[in-house]
């Protein structure tokens, strides 16, 4: 089984931080930060490197 894609989201406005999967990332970009409502771009996400990767 391949490792699932994970990202760290940091809201540019309220600075809320959470680890998210691709469907959450897409929902945040489409709807804005769930905590404060600020618009969110793809730049707010950083790919998490899996420790299982070589």
């Amino acid at each position: 089984m391949s490792a699932s894609e994970e990202y760290v989201f940091v809201c540019p406005d309220c600075e809320e931080s959470m680890e998210v999967n691709p469907s959450m990332r897409d929902a945040l970009v489409a709807n804005g930060c769930v905590v404060c409502g600020a618009p969110v771009s793809i730049d707010a996400f950083t790919r998490v490197e899996s420790s299982a990767d070589p």
Binding site: M18, S23, M24, D26, A27, L28, A30, N31, G32, V34, C36, G37, A38
Partner: peptide
Amino acid sequence: EITPEHVEQYGDAKRP
């Protein structure tokens, strides 16, 4: 506990 469905629902709520 936040799900993509929650994100969509809160997208309709006004910003604080």
